[in-house]
């Protein structure tokens, strides 16, 4: 098993930090990808962040009321070794199956 740590993502709009309001997962929980993970509040709004990863929650950072900077650790997952390292999928390098030929239709003017 391996551990993957995720930082607080860039929430856009120039926000540099967020306050933890409510953890929706706890240490030891098995979570699915995209499952609501934590509700945080910024100076703009409060929002639920989805889990970026399926796995077992090892650690959460910040109690309700604590402020976390964008880029600082938010949550750590334990995942099987063969899934660690890469998040998401990488396009396979193979020959395209279908070709589209573009040609000018000279009759149509």
């Amino acid at each position: 098993m391996a551990e993957i740590s995720f930082p607080l993502p860039d929430l856009g709009e120039g926000l540099i930090e967020a306050t933890v309001l409510e953890w929706l997962v706890a240490e030891g929980d098995q979570v699915e990808r995209n499952q609501p993970m934590v509700e945080v509040e910024t100076t703009k709004s409060s929002l639920e962040l989805p889990s970026p990863q399926a796995g077992t929650v090892v650690r959460t950072h910040g109690e309700p009321g604590d402020t976390i900077n964008v880029g600082d650790p938010l949550i750590v997952f334990e995942v099987p070794d063969d899934t660690a390292g890469i998040v998401g999928t990488v396009p396979k390098d193979e020959a395209p199956k279908r070709r589209v030929r573009l040609s000018a239709n000279l009759d149509d003017d």
Binding site: V20, L21, E22, L24, E41, P64, G65
Partner: peptide, 15 residues
Amino acid sequence: WLPARTHSNAVTSRA
């Protein structure tokens, strides 16, 4: 009592 919540942001709480 919901930790860290105010009058305006307690409504969204899942708890």
